[in-house]
Every structure is written in C-alpha cells, then in structure tokens.
C-alpha cells in the first residue's frame, strides 16, 4: 500500500549553459507514494515559490510517457530506477522513507544544459532532418493496401517506431552515442517497403549527421537499451550497421 514518506533531494542547479552548477539539498515531508515523481517536484517547486525562491526548471509535458519531453537522471539512471517508464510515469512508491534522491540533468556533449535540469536536445531533430523520413509529398500516393507488408515486418517496424526521442540512450551511454535513437528510425523505415527504397541513402545521411554533431561511437555496452523507457532493442543497431556498411560497400 502507498504511504507518505520523507525524502531528501539533491538537485542540480545551474543558471545557464556556461555557468557553473552545483547540487542543492532540499527536504520534503509527507510525500504520498501514490504521486508521480514530477508531482513530487511540483510540490517542491510550490514550496520554493511560496518561499519566494526560483523553482527548479525541468522539462515535462504530456506526463503520460509518450511525448519524450521529460528527462532527469535520477539516482544514476535516466528516467529513474524503474524500468520501461519515463520520469513522468515514475512513482514515488519506488522510493523508501528517508531516501536521498539525486537528480541530475542529462549529461552529454550533444545535450548542453540550458538551466538546472533542462537540456537542449535539438540535435536529435537535426539527425531526423538529415534523413529520417520517406521522401513523399502530400497527395499522389498509392492506396494504403496497394503494397502488402508482412505482419512480422510491420510489428518489428512498430517496435522500433516506439522511440520517443527523449535522449535517455545518449544520456545513459558512457560514449554519448546516439546510435540507438538513429537505429530505431533507420530500422523502422528500412523494414517497410515504403521506406526501403531510400534505406541506403537514409542510413548514410543520418550517420553522417550524427557524427557531425559530435555524438560518440557505439561500443555495444547495452546501457542505452537497458535505460530506454520504450525498450528499443540494440538489434536495431546491428541493422543500422548492416544498412550502413552495405550502402557504403555498394558505392
């Protein structure tokens, strides 16, 4: 059963990208374990506002685990110690009474801190802009059922497409690699006949952009997969490697 707990928070506070940050410690009393982690931070912020202090800045939006806006590196895990959830779905029942919880921003060269726990993840959008699409314009496309797609492929594509672009993979990776994110998009589109046509071009363009933006090299530690809130598999990375090497050998 959920009960009320007292906790100590160590929260990273940082004024701006260039400024030096530090941990601040806060005590919270009587937090319901039924509340979500972000609701707990709401309570903290409400307290801070009432004391006339500036609230902790963090990204969040849908609060149902799908928009990918929330981040937070909690007690050594992106999206906290629970598995297969985003921070917004993490609940306080995962923490014990008297716990000290350390909250840090994503730390990766690709994701500079904007303020406190808020980071800039636009690099991921840039990778998609480089090739994470099927080049079709609106209109003039064939009937949806014109090309049958094997259910197995459609299901695998959907597994990969579940990626929410939150950045936990790069945040978890000791190499700051974005390979899981890139591979999920490349896999989704390579598995479907509609996306297959420009699969080679896509893999090359997205890898090139990823490298250009300074993300690290994948060393297959599997930390990304373990921390991914949507359980994206690193078998996608194998597929990406395959697609990329094949494409380059063909050239």
């Amino acid at each position: 059963m959920d009960k009320n707990i007292n906790i100590t928070l160590k929260v990273w506070r940082q004024k701006g990208p260039k400024e030096k940050g530090a941990f601040e410690t806060y005590q919270l009393k009587d937090v319901s374990q039924g509340s979500s982690f972000l609701e707990m931070l709401d309570i903290l912020n409400e307290t801070l506002v009432n004391e006339g202090k500036e609230p902790v800045v963090f990204d969040h939006d849908c609060r149902e685990g799908i928009c990918g806006m929330c981040s937070l590196y909690i007690d050594g895990h992106p999206h906290g110690p629970d598995t297969s959830v985003t921070t917004c779905q993490l609940h306080m029942r995962k923490f014990n009474d008297g716990a000290t919880i350390t909250i840090e921003p994503w730390r990766s060269a690709g994701f500079p801190v904007i303020r406190d726990l808020m980071v800039d993840r636009y690099a991921y959008d840039k990778i998609i802009q480089a090739g994470g699409f099927v080049s079709v314009n609106t209109g003039g496309v064939p009937d949806a059922n014109a090309i049958p797609v094997p259910k197995k492929d459609a299901d695998l594509a959907m597994d990969a497409a579940a990626c929410i672009g939150c950045g936990a993979c790069a945040a978890a990776c000791k190499n700051g690699s974005a390979m899981l994110f890139v591979s999920a998009k490349v896999s989704q589109l390579a598995l479907l006949p509609q996306g297959r046509i420009e699969a080679a071009r896509r893999a090359k363009a997205m890898i090139a952009k990823m490298d250009e933006l300074g993300f690290g090299n994948c060393t297959n530690t599997r930390a990304c997969e373990a921390e991914c809130p949507k359980d994206i598999s690193i078998s996608n990375i194998a597929r990406l490697n395959r697609e990329f090497i094949k494409a380059k050998l063909k050239d």
Partner: peptide, 30 residues
C-alpha cells in the same frame, strides 16, 4: 575512439553512476 567518446560524453560527469542490469562490466571497461 576512446578519446572521441570521452569528448562526446562532455566535460561534466554524473555524480551517481549505476551500471544497469544486463550491462556487462567488461563492456564498459574494454
């Protein structure tokens, strides 16, 4: 690659580091 990866990781390090389940110790210490 290690130098590049350290650069990609950025200058600031996490205060708390936990090795997730299913991640081999060796994979992070190659």
């Amino acid at each position: 690659l290690t130098l590049q990866n350290r650069k990609a990781r950025g200058n600031s390090r996490y205060a708390v580091n936990v090795r997730p389940k299913n991640v081999e110790w060796s994979s992070q210490n190659m």
